[in-house]
């Protein structure tokens, strides 16, 4: 594929290319929570753009961090990021993983939290409680994303995916997922 003219070194700066990559990544979504982009989720840690003198194009490094160690969606996200960049005409792409500092739900964008709630998943608490291994801790009051009641209960700390816990609302009786603090 021809490298689109806008990505040629002569016409753009690396900062402009970085912004273009960022824009592309906003359309790459989490396969398990398709309303969230990889940017909303906070898994993209850095985008490093350098001119590649050999090809005359740009070398792109996208650094990602896993949400959960064993999250199977990470491999899919990495592949989708690569495809989105290839489609945009970039060819020199590397996607690397960084583990430290470890991902936290605090990195999820406010916009992302709004989208989660609209999708029917309770977003992670703004100020997360300290996660300790103590048994039978008092649970945080999680708001039902459907009827907005705080009158809810934890059904299971482990839900349909690694990042979610299962709750039930006492008022509207609906079960719902909570994107748990991490």
């Amino acid at each position: 594929m021809e490298i689109p003219n806008k990505h040629r070194i002569v016409t753009t700066t690396s900062e402009e290319v970085k912004q273009a990559v960022l824009f592309l990544l906003e359309s790459v979504t989490d396969p398990e929570v398709p309303v969230l982009s990889v940017i909303d989720l906070g898994v993209v840690r850095d985008i490093i753009v350098n001119p590649n003198p050999e090809s005359g194009g740009w070398s792109i490094i996208v650094q990602v961090t896993p949400t959960y160690t064993g999250c199977p969606a990470m491999d899919v996200m990495k592949t989708t990021i690569r495809m989105a960049l290839l489609q945009a005409g970039f060819t020199d792409i590397s996607i690397t993983s960084v583990l430290s500092p470890a991902w936290t739900t605090d990195w999820m964008s406010e916009h992302g939290k709004e989208k989660l709630k609209a999708y029917g998943i309770a977003p992670p608490q703004y100020k997360q409680a300290v996660c300790t291994p103590d048994s039978f801790q008092e649970e945080e009051a999680i708001q039902c994303p459907l009827c907005h009641s705080y009158h809810t209960r934890l059904v299971s700390q482990f839900g349909s995916t690694a990042c979610k816990a299962l709750y039930q609302c006492h008022d509207c009786k609906e079960p719902f997922d909570y994107f748990k603090c991490h």
Partner: peptide, 19 residues
């Protein structure tokens, strides 16, 4: 780095199994 990442998850495992 691997330990720092995994520790958050193991915290949930300890809670769950001890309960």
């Amino acid at each position: 780095a691997i330990a720092e990442k995994a520790l958050k998850e193991v915290t949930y495992h300890v809670r769950w199994s001890s309960e």
